[in-house]
């Protein structure tokens, strides 16, 4: 009887102690600051050079990123428009999608996107994961859908094995996570300007240093700031000039306005990052500026209300060329 009593008490204790505690898995992704002591008075930061991601997930993301079979007709991969070796974009004003369809906005670079605050020119995606569905389902881009992707994954034994070894389901969720993780790993450290920021005065040529001075004094740095020299705020395209004269006012080309519908959001775009900017011509949301000089001049007129002198433009461009980092392998 005593034994029975003890057993029942023990059972009760076990049952009542069994309280499910769902601990959220902490992300293993992390960045390490580039400089030992970053200068807080500057609006810009050096890019962190070292970072850690799940290598299996990154490898899977890389494979998915380069796999054209994700598109409807098997011709367009993510990498078709985001060529990693060419600054993370395709060098076209607008990209060519499935069946030769031409997109409407300029393809942004995929490099260093880990430091951006939102995604797409109009910032409609809050995370890289959210962003993945955009090009994949866009009729002028990959024109695909998740059923198509899931069936592809189920047919490909390599994918089956990779997903199994990672212990994740072959779901759209996993695909988004893998691609986004791969994209986060695409960081280009060690640009001359970064080395300069970390104290290497000689890393920046004289012109570039003068350009950096102009960049600050003219006010470019007001918007192109933070780790990415951009990518952490929105700004109106054409503060002192009405852009509708030279740029399309079609729906889909109006930036935040296409998302919020508010008049003050017309032509408000995410400020693009200037990292690797010399590799990502043409420029602006519509790819209307073919060269850096043209883009810089336009920016002076549109954003600063100044007609920049050619000397200034040249200095600024030489600064911008110092923003090209070490491209990922």
């Amino acid at each position: 009887m005593t034994r029975l009593l003890f057993a029942s008490i023990a059972c009760a204790v076990l049952v009542f102690q069994a309280i499910a505690d769902s601990a959220a898995g902490a992300s293993s992704d992390s960045f390490v600051s580039a400089c030992a002591e970053p200068d807080r008075s500057l609006a810009v930061r050096a890019i962190p050079g070292r970072h850690k991601f799940d290598p299996g997930l990154v490898a899977l993301g890389r494979k998915l990123f380069h796999d054209p079979r994700l598109s409807r007709d098997g011709t367009i991969a993510c990498a078709s428009c985001h060529v990693l070796a060419q600054g993370g974009d395709d060098g076209r004003p607008t990209s060519i999608g499935v069946g030769g369809a031409s997109g409407s906005v300029n393809a942004p670079s995929v490099l260093n996107r880990a430091f951006d605050f939102r995604y797409f020119w109009n910032g409609r995606a809050a995370t890289l994961e959210d962003q993945v569905s955009g090009p994949l389902e866009h009729p002028k881009e990959m024109a695909s859908n998740w059923e198509h992707v899931e069936s592809l994954l189920a047919r490909d034994s390599d994918y089956v094995a990779r997903f199994e070894s990672l212990g994740i389901p072959r779901s759209p969720e996993s695909v988004r996570t893998a691609i986004a993780t791969f994209e986060r790993s695409l960081i280009t450290p060690d640009a001359p300007f970064d080395r300069y920021l970390c104290g290497d005065e000689k890393a920046l040529p004289h012109e570039a240093r003068a350009g950096w001075e102009r960049f600050r004094s003219l006010g470019c740095v007001s918007c192109h700031q933070g780790v990415n020299l951009g990518g952490n705020m929105y700004e109106r395209f054409g503060v002192f000039v009405d852009p509708s004269a030279n740029h399309s006012s079609e729906p889909g080309m109006l930036g935040r306005f296409d998302v919020t519908g508010r008049p003050e959001d017309r032509f408000v775009f995410k400020v693009p990052s200037l990292r690797n900017v010399e590799l990502t011509a043409p420029y602006f949301h519509d790819g209307s500026a073919a060269t850096l000089e043209e883009a810089v001049h336009t920016m002076g007129l549109y954003q600063l209300g100044r007609d920049l002198a050619e000397d200034d433009v040249a200095l600024l461009v030489s600064f911008l060329r110092s923003l090209t980092g070490r491209l990922p392998e």
Partner: peptide
Amino acid sequence: KRELAVVRNSQRY
């Protein structure tokens, strides 16, 4: 963020 940036630029000018 965006208004401050442009106001600051005009103030710079």
